[in-house]
């Protein structure tokens, strides 16, 4: 039983032709000719992409298709070689990530970034924007920020209740399980009151019991009017929750459409089989290898 917002979004998307780069009736995010090269390798080369407001849009594709890189580019965590993109009608091309987040375009990460040696509650409170006490000068004068801090704490506790983490609020985030960290990261992103939330593999490493609750949260977030875009390998989830699916392979968008139309698309099947002969489409593979510096 989809809610009102879901029904409206699905109705709006029903008339969109299922082809790469399709124009949407009400786009919150529009990207044009975005590309990123690493040495000789073209990681991302997206000609045109739109994301419908208040929709749940899934971004799928085989490993190395450039999904996460595209996320990084759009959210300012990497610099594009070419391209421009707008959010809420204004250009945000290569805007610093923190400014984008303040504008309400908030992302999470594939490898969960819970701040281990901060309590769960502090993780949440950190998410609130426009905090007066975060200015160094005001920080030593508690009367300036105490009232706001109280309001932020209430907002945080309410979200923690909703995500079943309230009992853990005083624990260090590092002590949570992998699934709980995913929940915390999502809840923390909501502290920014986002218009567009971009989730990078929200299901990776989450146990089946928690998956359903995560899905419900994603639906709830959208029902509040927030647009959701996510990268995911779990095809069950994609089928369950998304209104629209964008498929990438070798850096390009190769297909778009409703979950049903995309799953039957020959180009999509070829892309997956071509890249991974032995790959089970429902498996969540890609994780582990993020080498280097910590």
């Amino acid at each position: 039983m989809p809610g009102e917002v879901a029904a409206a979004a699905q109705a709006a998307l029903a008339v969109v032709s299922p082809e790469p780069g399709a124009t949407k009736p009400d786009s919150i995010l529009v990207a044009d000719s975005v590309s990123r090269h690493f040495g000789g390798l073209t990681a991302v080369d997206v000609a045109h992409l739109e994301v419908q407001r208040s929709s749940i849009t899934a971004l799928i594709g085989p490993n190395g298709a450039g999904k996460s890189t595209l996320f990084n580019l759009l959210t300012g965590f990497d610099n594009a070689d070419t391209g421009n993109w707008t959010y809420e009608g204004a250009s945000v091309t290569n805007m610093p990530s923190y400014k984008l987040a303040r504008k309400g375009m908030v992302r999470t990460f594939q490898l969960t970034k819970s701040l281990s040696r901060l309590t769960v509650l502090d993780n949440m409170r950190l998410g609130a924007t426009g905090q007066k006490g975060e200015r160094m000068g005001a920080a030593i004068l508690p009367f300036i920020w105490r009232g706001q801090e109280k309001a932020i704490t209430e907002q945080a506790m309410a979200l923690l209740e909703r995500f079943n983490l309230a009992a853990k609020s005083a624990d260090f985030a590092g002590a949570l399980s992998g699934g709980q960290r995913k929940l915390l990261e999502m809840a923390r992103a909501l502290m920014l009151k986002p218009n567009l939330i971009m989730l990078d593999e929200p299901m990776a490493g989450v146990n089946p019991a928690l998956k359903q609750s995560l899905l419900d949260h994603i639906r709830d977030i959208r029902e509040e009017g927030t647009t959701v875009m996510f990268v995911e390998h779990d095809m069950d989830m994609v089928r369950d929750v998304s209104d629209w699916v964008v498929v990438m392979a070798q850096g390009k968008v190769i297909a778009e459409g409703t979950p049903r139309s995309v799953m039957g698309n020959q180009a999509v099947i070829d892309a997956y089989l071509g890249a991974h002969h032995d790959r089970n489409l429902t498996a969540s593979g890609e994780s582990l290898t993020q080498g280097g510096n910590s």
């Binding site: 987040a101 908030v106 990460f109 901060l118 409170r125 006490g133 975060e134 502290m191």
Partner: peptide, 23 residues
């Protein structure tokens, strides 16, 4: 203070704090 909290956040993971809209 919240300023100190954001510093500790940066120590743990700078990208996460960037994604939360902090300079």
């Amino acid at each position: 203070s919240p300023w100190g909290r954001s510093l500790r956040g940066i120590r743990e993971d700078e990208d996460a704090v960037l994604a939360l809209g902090k300079n």
